[in-house]
Nucleic acid binder design. Structure first.
Lengths: 337, 337
DNA sequence: TATTTTTCTGCAAACGTTTGCATTAAATCT
DNA sequence: AGATTTAATGCAAACGTTTGCAGAAAAATA
């Protein structure tokens, strides 16, 4: 038998509204009544029904995280996990619940988002950026629904938490150039990932500023679906002016490249330097350890939910764009002897 | 202006109950009316309010995952991530949402669980096992609330998804013994983790059956808080009858040990063999690659939610205990030359 | 003491659905 | 044709809260 606010009211000899006010700590209830009601609550072991509460208060104390499908997932698994950790750590201290949403296709995901938003199941959303999410972001904007984006967004009117990927990539490329490298390859990801194109931009910028021409034959696109990812590496390494260094956009890719180079009898970093992004456990465990750009993934999550909850409280942050700083972790894979 | 079921009813010229029945695909509504209502829904872009729906139907289409605090988290991060992935993959195909819950202390976590359950925010729970969760499990049992446990449970009446950790550990230890090792160390985790004690049991069993005495000085307990985790390794390695192999309960630990052994000038596997559990990316990336027990983490998650949803549908699975099979992935770290 | 203000509590509507029961019209049977 | 069954819909209560408004009692003021 479920115990409701009415049962408590009956036992305490007051009206349901009074009980409600006691629970919500409305100050205009006399201490005497408060005590009596609290005793009744205790006695009946009453707990408020959150659905009823949400229904009338039109808020849920719940936020959602929208995570791209398997394509990007597999692409950098660790990334999403860290973000989620950052978010859950914060919400658990602030009495919010988190619904984690993902799907195999954009259509499915979109359906889920609509359901959460229009169904009133969440108060706000953290959207993990992805170019294909435009439709989702557009929907949220149309609905005037509170949300923040982790990653890049064209619209400056959106709340976004991001790295300065261009500069970060510029920095890591410069690190190589400063070591005397002039023949530097770039291994990016699918075009759909804005982060990847940004990092390509930084790479290009560094080369240009240093008077090094960009050589198209040194640019590669990694795809999780392809078996032939490192297929062209032997070819390019057989050139007379083959690259002496690679910038890759993630530790996973860097690790793969290093394995491939080993197969070819090349030594890292003696023959070829390799650098990457994310500073995940892979970069630390690999041997040689990989020089990697720390981008504060956990902070991305933490800052995003921090911002979202502020918005929900009605405190519009002045800055619509938060940049999480980066820091290069120099390790063995890029140290020229 | 929110559009409700009443607005739809008005436009379609029917009562709200009829609209509701159309949405729920109640068969006793005439095709004609169905069409008219659907058109109205379309026209008004109506979407049902899930809180109201939950309130009256007393169900939420939401399940929760309870994850241990930072202690165990850091202990095997990858584990929880994979489990979550397995769960979300399944729920997203079955129109359920997932609330992920964690907290820093048991008290906080318990409070959150009570809130979810008593507040009626979730229909069921997946509980990631932990000895300290007894109080939570006890609470759920008392409440007669639907839940499944991932990991060990004493109570055979609970629905659990687990590995046969004893046998798995027996198997991996036997793998070492079969290679001629007789002096084998064991590196476990905190006592609070049942999985760890189970694995110790399997280790012991293998030694005993093989007529090898257990030497207490070869047993270690890894703790995430200690700086001195690998402190005693040099000491034990300086014994004349030092271990020629280590069984560790996770890839992270195995990796740490290998680093420490390298520092001591020992070679893996030539001087010392090392094996571990979980078959995470670490075991594959480490060099030497680590022989590790694949335990089907993703499947643990998948099977757990599969079971939970069956329970919620009223289909009690006949087996209250599901064992996910294990498989040893033999790699470099245990191959004796 | 009569009047006004303040403090505390209750009434009842509202939130947006679902569903058992009653009702009406149509269809089937005798 | 009248009686009975069947099919389709509506009525109204229920789910368990919150909250604006009103009212009563107590306190403060004149």
């Amino acid at each position: 038998m479920k115990v409701t606010i009415k049962d408590v009211a009956a036992l305490a000899g007051v009206s349901p509204s009074t009980v409600s006010r006691v629970i919500l700590e409305n100050p205009k209830i006399s201490q005497e009544t408060v005590d009596r009601v609290k005793k009744a609550i205790e006695q009946l072991n009453y707990h408020p029904n959150l659905m009823a509460k949400s229904l009338v208060s039109q808020s849920t104390s719940t936020v959602g995280i929208i995570i791209p499908g398997p394509t990007e997932q597999a692409f950098s698994n660790v990334f999403f996990n860290e973000v989620i950790r950052g978010i859950v750590d914060y919400t658990s201290k602030h009495n919010y619940d988190v619904i984690v949403t993902s799907a195999n296709t954009l259509v499915e995901l979109q359906k889920q988002v609509v359901n959460l938003v229009r169904g009133g199941k969440v108060d706000g959303l953290v959207v993990l950026s992805n170019r294909f999410f435009d439709s989702i972001v557009q929907f949220l904007t149309d609905q005037n629904f509170p949300f923040v984006i982790i990653g890049n967004s064209d619209e400056s009117s959106h709340f976004t938490i991001d790295n300065d990927n261009v500069t970060a990539s510029y920095d890591v490329t410069m690190h190589l150039i400063n070591q005397g490298h002039t023949s530097i390859g770039f291994i990016g990801g699918p075009r759909s990932i804005v982060m990847s194109t940004d990092r390509f931009l930084g790479y290009s910028k560094a080369l240009e500023e240093s008077g090094i021409a960009i050589r198209p034959e040194l640019l590669f696109e990694y795809s999780m679906y392809s078996d032939t990812n490192y297929h062209e590496i032997p070819l390019v390494m057989s050139l007379s002016n083959h690259p002496t260094a690679f910038v890759t956009i993630s530790d996973d890719i860097a690790f793969g490249i290093i394995q491939k180079l080993k197969e070819l009898g090349k030594k890292v970093p003696e023959d070829i330097a390799v650098v990457s992004f994310n500073n995940t456990i892979i970069s630390q465990i690999s041997s040689p350890q990989i020089t990697s750009m720390e981008i504060g993934i956990y902070q991305l999550g933490y800052a995003s939910i921090f911002t979202l909850l502020r918005i929900l409280r009605g405190e519009e942050p002045s800055d619509r764009r938060i940049i999480i700083p980066h820091r290069l972790m120099v390790r063995e894979s890029s140290i020229s002897k």
